[in-house]
Design a protein around this nucleic acid. Structure first.
Lengths: 336, 336
DNA sequence: CATGTTGACTTAATCGATTTCGAAAAGTCT
DNA sequence: AGACTTTTCGAAATCGATTAAGTCAACATG
């Protein structure tokens, strides 16, 4: 590997001069600097990020903490899109991405320790159990942190507009004439609570009453649970005319159950999903859903984090709300 | 941050002694070592991976190179599962994962340079254009590399059994009585070529002739293209009784087209996918498909790489074939 | 001409951890 | 007691890059 020392020998200057020339310091003669840069290029010099990190205390490396309960990893398209987007934006600013995990090898470590161990300049946290003490330790630490879809007052957050999204969905189906709207929600998380609250609030605003049994519990990304919830809804004496699902993928379970019971979509019952993943747009009928702008979420999270890292003085915890948009498919029918 | 120096001051020993005690060297008195470890724990000492990397030339960091043409990133479940699995296995061996990209910030870099810059001990390459000069430069470099689903003779590879998988699928549908089997394949890659060759070979072995037009071209992960290909197949005078799709996701396009034309699955026509992603198993009817063991692929890739890194002497390029298995769903009907 | 000033480099310390080569102390053997 | 080992620990170099402080010559100024 070519180091700064190799270049200095070749150019008959000190290592300091080489470093300064390469970093464009002003106290180096223009010709000397040009020559050094030329030689560096010829020799195929590459700076060593490790040495630089050690000296400067800045790694230009961002940790990402994504944990999936199901441990199927990034199976959820929403999160894999966010990750990709974080990665792209981080790279644009000169940062690399490293996964932060709980342990590494035989050494037990918590998230904070891992991030410190790797000298991460900051961490992006998403899709985790935000009540986990290890997560709380991290967000309250000296490491700049940005959370996704969860607010800690110690750090900045990027949020999907769950309240607005759910309100828009409810108002949309209301506009289509639906008054008997059921909601199957995922496991209780802060996101779920927001959607649930927004569902109740919007229904109240619209004067829509929610009969007993119209709020059903299932899980995110779990068609089976949604199928069972759908079955329970269909067993009600007073069936809903519209069912809102926890997310697009889990809707598949509902779709199967409806099909099985000979209930047509949207002829007999209308449905809507949430997320706006690719799948929802290739199904026929196309699923009406609320698209979360994962790309923007990842981008804004990375931007916010880089901002904190590079201008720590000016930083104050800030929440960025990312709006989504309703994707009108063909699964919500207009009724009289 | 607590460093080795802090501990040495507190224990009245040299930094060398602390380092040795912490690393379990034998030339330190057992009691002294125990005391040092105790103090280290009390002070919350964490080793600094950067300093260690600089000194030892080993980063315990593995680069992963995943590029998706669609730039939708890790949208393909097969790859996100592999990534997750690579990550888990790497962590088990004490390695972290960093994404390798083409440029970083304003600095233009190729993959090799990026990996060197970050001192990656090795790189795992998947889902890229293997004819890209930058990729070729990387796999032929001094950096240990493991490729997925592609063989270079300069490095080890982990391969999904595309030949065996396709053969098993064909034999399965043949066993169900099908003799008119169409195959819609994805864009031409080495994987596609293997499946295509295996399709032809297996058909030949079984004495099945492949009429004009039964081999159709579409794309991976692209329901639209598969839908169009399906339409072309349905327009044939002599329709196939069974269609094999490029992958499970793109089958959705075929499903829509069949539905639209009133062709029932599997009543009128049988179908099978490839991959065995979660979606295929929650659709009704359940899709018959060949499951690629993404989890094993990621695990073996990580193991192979760690092996090369830690025992470079004994290393010889090796290919590991990961078998998949047929997931029998309800989309292939028995015909007389 | 003595004194400042500026430009262009270099010296040397530093970041945190590891490791080679000693060195002192203690123990062993004849 | 003298010679040799063994045990236990430390001094100092090292990895590659950065930078504060210092040097020295050339030049400007009153």
């Amino acid at each position: 590997m070519v180091t700064i020392t190799d270049i200095s020998l070749r150019c008959n200057v000190s290592r300091a001069t080489v470093s300064k020339a390469l970093n464009g310091h002003s106290d180096i003669n223009a010709e000397t600097a040009a020559h050094i840069r030329q030689v560096a290029k010829e020799m195929g010099y590459l700076p060593n990020a490790t040495a630089r990190t050690l000296k400067l205390g800045r790694s230009h490396n961002i940790g990402v903490l994504f944990v999936d309960k199901t441990s199927s990893g990034l199976s959820h398209e929403y999160f894999s899109q966010i990750l990709e987007s974080v990665k792209q934006e981080a790279e644009r600013s000169g940062y690399d991405i490293t996964f932060i995990s709980r342990d590494i090898g035989a050494v037990p470590m918590d998230y904070y320790e891992h991030a410190k161990y790797r000298n991460c300049d900051g961490v992006i946290v998403a899709s985790v159990d935000f009540t986990d003490p290890a997560v709380i330790k991290l967000v309250n630490s000296d490491i700049p942190t940005v959370t996704l879809d969860y607010v800690f007052d110690s750090c900045s957050a990027v949020l999907s507009d769950n309240v607005g999204g759910m309100a828009e969905l409810v108002r949309y189906v209301y506009g289509k004439g639906h008054r008997k709207i059921a909601f199957i929600h995922g496991e209780i998380t802060s996101v779920t609570q927001k959607r649930l609250a927004s569902f109740h609030k919007t229904c109240a605003e619209l004067g829509v009453t929610i009969p007993e049994g119209y709020i059903e519990t299932a899980n995110y990304h779990d068609p089976k649970a949604s199928g069972l919830a759908t079955r329970r809804l269909l067993a009600l004496k007073d069936r809903p005319t519209c069912i809102l699902y926890p997310d697009d993928f889990s809707f598949i379970g509902g779709m199967n159950e409806l099909e099985k019971q000979g209930v047509s979509i949207p002829g007999d019952i209308s449905v809507a999903g949430y997320d706006g993943i690719l799948l929802s747009q290739v199904l026929r009928p196309r699923l009406t859903t609320y698209r979360q702008d994962a790309e923007a979420m990842g981008r804004e999270a990375a931007r916010a984090l880089v901002e904190i890292i590079e201008r720590p003085k000016e930083w104050i915890p800030r929440q960025t709300m990312i709006p989504g948009r309703l994707l009108e498919g063909d699964t919500v029918r207009t009724i009289q």
